[in-house]
Design a protein around this nucleic acid. Structure first.
Lengths: 190, 190, 190, 190
DNA sequence: TATGAATGAGTGTTCATTCAT
DNA sequence: CATGAATGAACACTCATTCAT
């Protein structure tokens, strides 16, 4: 698992925030799950709010990295879609709670400007992808926000099911879901 | 505005639970928003937990009714999809917070068996629709849960944007989004 | 039972104060037991505190009356003891809760001066009896307070048992208990 | 003064419960009297009810110990009476509020089975004493419950007076009161 | 006159945070 | 560094009292 206390705390907080939400999670709960003293958390984080912000930032950063790493800038829109989708899958697999945590906390009132900015940068990346797809006449002429919401909304709900064990993650299923998401946003020639 | 106190309390609670979540909403907040005394809430609801459950039940019931009302059992799968989609739209329009409230609270630890059952019945209805579409070879052969998650996930995220004022709800947009959602689950002949 | 609402309220309050104490009894409890609306109590009594005081006064008055009625001023100390004892028995029988209510509330912080005074008058009566017995050399030369405490303490505990059904009230038993109480305070010639 | 917080809380609770009763005592009152924060009480006791039960148990245990310690099993009934009486005096002296607290809370609705059992064991001890006295023809043939009630009722009321400063506790007075109590239960040969 | 819905101060209890060890 | 005992503000909830009907 985590090597040092800071990571143990963040891992515990991520698990609990994803499962119970920020307000439903107490600092002693985090301490117990992380197997540290409650006071120890305050050696690493100024407050519960600072903790959730650092955690959110870190998760969004990892998500962004996952999606952007080796991004095929010169490939086709379809190939880029696969790249992004695979990046999201990789991120969700790596840390099963992080995706849900990001989704359920991205509009939270306690997020600081930096956290909002980090999330916005992720959205910006999606926007630029979608815009380029729309310009090429391959993606539907809907508001970019809407297109992103459709894919991201569908994807998060799918991984919520996987996390809950209600559907089993297989390469075939993921491939079909990717197809489904792509069909949701692409322009159909028929 | 609601006519009686019970409704004022439920309206206030729905708004706050949707905006801040159950744990982030205090009973005094609900009382203030409903413009009633804190004690008054306990004349109508046994506890905060009873309140969220009654609210959830009522919302799920309205959602189910909206979707099932005048359901065209003998029409085509495509026409039935439109009917369901329009039912969801009608529900979301009628009470902008209810859809988000249902989505964010449907897995909550404080939901009682009755609430879970009500939500399950809604899911069951979607399942029977999806199954019938799969049998007719018109909907993709994916797990029904996954198909429902894709459409519902996309739809909720879209209405979150509408609620936040980031996209404007027009008949044209909704029609395109319906098309997009349908393309996500239908089998493509090309 | 009680003919008018005022009496119904006082009966209910007496029962509940005896069983649960003043602080453990709520005004709605009294209203429910008396089968009147909660607001009705405030038509007859200014406050819960006023109610307990009126009740205490009334009980002490009845107790005093029971003990003093037909008091044999010219009889022997022994005969007077029997008279007092029988008066206490009569009072306890008439209203099984009143004796216990008086005992458990006679030192309460919410008793007003009038209530304290009424109780004091009862004590004064006992004092004059005890003093006269001591002067005649028939009652032990202990502080009067102590002698009263012994008999009253024993008597109340006995009736608590009777009220709880742990011992059965028979004339023989009562007669023996009177003997026992008398032996506790009399001077023994042997 | 108590050395640790747990004892400070129990001391404060005992004082307040004896003076105002369980329902008339608030947790903040206990905290103030014990000079600790209100939250601190919940580090040591699960709830107010758990606190009153622990306190009751502990007091009954000390009372039982006081009465049973060095009990002269082979001495006369009269000598055993003195032993018990002195045990009660010692207990009452050691902690002036504990006796009154036990007496006023022994039938309370919030006592758990363990507390009731502890009190019952104390009563059982008195029963066996009284029974042995009755068998030897030295104690009146009244129900044991009644005999215990007489002595215990008298004793508690006496110590209530002493606690209130209305009579002064001297060896002579106590000795006379013991005589009085004994005379209440013994068989008289004259 | 009688009511019970409504209230908000006050209750028992929790929890983010601090700090002596 | 790490802890967990201690805290008090804030929580969910209750109840004496009021007042429109």
């Amino acid at each position: 698992m985590a090597v040092n206390k800071r990571e143990k705390i963040m891992d515990a907080a991520l698990l609990l925030f994803a499962e119970r939400g920020y307000d439903g999670t107490t600092v002693p709960m985090i301490a117990d799950t992380a197997v540290v003293g409650a006071g120890t958390i305050y050696r690493y984080f100024e407050s519960k709010e600072a903790l959730v912000n650092e955690l959110f930032n870190e998760c969004v950063q990892r998500f962004t990295d996952s999606v952007k790493r080796n991004y095929p800038y010169s490939d086709s829109i379809r190939a880029q879609f696969t790249h992004i989708f695979n990046g999201m899958v990789r991120f969700a697999k790596e840390d099963i709670h992080a995706l849900y945590f990001i989704d359920t906390h991205s509009e939270a009132r306690y997020l600081d400007p930096q956290s909002r900015e980090a999330f916005q940068q992720l959205l910006d990346f999606f926007h630029s992808y979608v815009n380029s797809g729309k310009e090429q006449g391959l993606i539907r002429p809907l508001p970019s926000d809407a297109l992103i919401a459709i894919v991201f909304g569908a994807f998060v709900k799918i991984y919520t099911l996987i996390r809950a064990g209600k559907i089993i993650e297989t390469p075939e299923l993921l491939s079909q879901i990717e197809e489904s998401c792509w069909d949701a946003v692409r322009i159909h020639s028929d």
